[in-house]
Nucleic acid binder design. Structure first.
Lengths: 331, 331
DNA sequence: CTGAAAGCGCTTACAG
DNA sequence: CTGAAAGCGCTTACAG
């Protein structure tokens, strides 16, 4: 059998409650006792049983991660590993573990989240996506369970960490305008995703500011986030339209778009896009400008915020949690 | 307070132990009692406290996932989201949760794994990578803790699910040989990763079978798995060498390689590579042949195997667990 | 500064 | 087929 707190207590000649206090480095325990107990813990190779701890203390030090539908092409985006690295970093430093919600469809994902909450498995949840109608988000919110959304939640007063997608797209579009381009197209994505709509808004705003008359057919939306989608679209557009440049809302689509364009056209097409990671650190590799969406910071910030939300909940103070991470155009 | 098993028992007029048995659908309980208890559970909105369950039963229904170092470029590979989907699918169907090991460097990753094992947080571990010297793998193995490696473990007698990388590379190289190419280069990666070495072996084997004399300087190894690395390398090679074709061991490197080559050379270079997902479902998009490494099946198979390993451990029978997933060249 | 006791919410033999 | 009792390994008031 594994070594328990009782074994340590007996060998150290103290009470189990004293051992607990030493483990948590309680300030009321004498240094002498601490040293003695710690020596015994080391000697017996003691590790606390986390299930017992959670049961007794009603805290888990585990955070649940809610992913989008696995069928969603968005899931394939390199955005995710980078976000995870950010979450990971904070988790390791604060001794929180990360647990995944499982399930490929809405029903099983909701089940998984309910299990986590009702089963007292996690202390809080982070949503790695934001979409318009999300029964899972609604459920968690209605339970008043601590959560943070990465992205822009469709419900008011929910803590979130996000890019300022509208401002980003506006800056990017303006960047193209300043380069002298006039007829600038917008390649979107899944309009259920909030960030797509925000980027579209920013794009329109920039055109308006530049006194360029926006036209509905400059926007290509309702697309999957896949390179081949961009590829086909580009071939289509290149032959029939006379755009000067494009704002492309997704990195993968942009990759395909460039390739598709080059396959049928002699002239290069200027494109600006959003990157979730530095695929192109080598300046020679791709000269297109982009904005880094700073997925690492989103992950890091989300978990940091959630830990505050959890603490805040205990203190029952009223605070609003929301944060936009900085961005910058890499030209 | 949350509803407990006692509340349900009282309201249903049975003992708590009976409620437990109903929850686990024990065959010795009468249908009548089951119906009654279930109705009460529904009425009171009862959910079992998973911490209490784990403490009492010594089972968690949680599997730990061990990731490579976050600094590793490999981590950025779309391989991971796809593996996760596979794991996820099995997890959802079998009511197992997935927990991540946190930490960016070796020390904190090892800490995280020790915490999971000693803290009784997980029933088993899946390693999402395989490298030559891995203190974490050594630790877990030495603890005789249930585990499965995705890839080829450097230690004998460890359960694993893997691609047959050597055979794959051999088939791929042979494919190029049959197309009439003779001077075939090999673009590798991190030689600490087992799969790189296996792919190199298969490549050499195919050349040998085709009576093509292999030369050391046909191999470019010790590279990061990044597009820009492929890009630079291609520019370098295209100007100085006269290869007919290449086997490229990584999808990202291959992407950069093609682009880099096209940037300085008039002639296309035939390349065959490994894909972790269908980035190019559209046949027009990229015509290069590839082998799908079937990351989804690797994830699925790994968790299925681990569940068997855990069960097998309880039964204390001796079994060897290892499996290669199928592969196929998409021409 | 430390200890004895009760309790967290389940499960598991044991008994009938 | 069902129940009473003990126990899983911690933590938390309470008392001193």
């Amino acid at each position: 059998m594994a070594v328990t707190i009782k074994d340590v207590a007996k060998k150290a000649g103290v009470a189990p409650s004293t051992v607990t206090r030493v483990i948590h480095d309680s300030s009321i325990i004498s240094q002498k006792t601490k040293d003695k107990v710690r020596a015994v813990m080391e000697e017996l190779n003691y590790y606390p049983n986390l299930n017992a701890r959670s049961l007794a203390s009603k805290k888990n030090s585990i955070i649940g991660l809610v992913f989008p539908d696995a069928t969603d092409a968005f899931y394939q985006n390199p955005f995710f590993p980078t976000v995870m690295r950010g979450l990971n970093e904070v988790g390791a430093n604060s001794n929180y573990s990360l647990q995944l919600t499982t399930g490929n469809d809405l029903t099983s994902r909701l089940n998984s989240v309910q299990r986590m909450i009702h089963g007292r498995q996690v202390d809080g949840l982070i949503f790695l996506y934001a979409r318009k109608n999300d029964p899972i988000l609604e459920f968690v919110h209605q339970q008043k369970f601590p959560l943070v959304v990465i992205g822009k939640p469709a419900i008011e007063n929910i803590p979130f960490v996000n890019n300022n997608n509208q401002q980003m797209a506006q800056d990017m579009t303006q960047y193209l305008v300043e380069k002298g381009y006039n007829k600038i197209g917008f390649i979107g994505g899944d309009p259920e995703q909030q960030f797509i709509n925000d980027r579209l808004l920013g794009y329109k705003e920039a055109l308006s500011n530049a006194n360029i008359e926006f036209q509905e057919d400059w926007v290509y939306n309702d697309l999957s986030f896949l390179p081949e989608v961009g590829y086909e679209l580009a071939q289509h557009i290149a032959k029939e339209q006379d755009f000067d440049a494009f704002v492309v809302a997704d990195q993968f689509v942009a990759t395909g778009f460039k390739e598709g364009w080059n396959a049928v056209s002699e002239t290069e097409i200027p494109v600006i896009t959003f990157h979730s990671f530095h695929m192109h650190e080598n300046a020679n590799f791709s000269s297109d400008p982009y904005v880094n969406i700073n997925a690492h910071e989103l992950g890091k910030g989300a978990l940091e915020m959630l830990l505050e939300v959890i603490q805040n909940q205990e203190e029952e103070t009223e605070r609003v949690f929301q944060r936009y991470v900085d961005h910058e155009i890499i030209g």
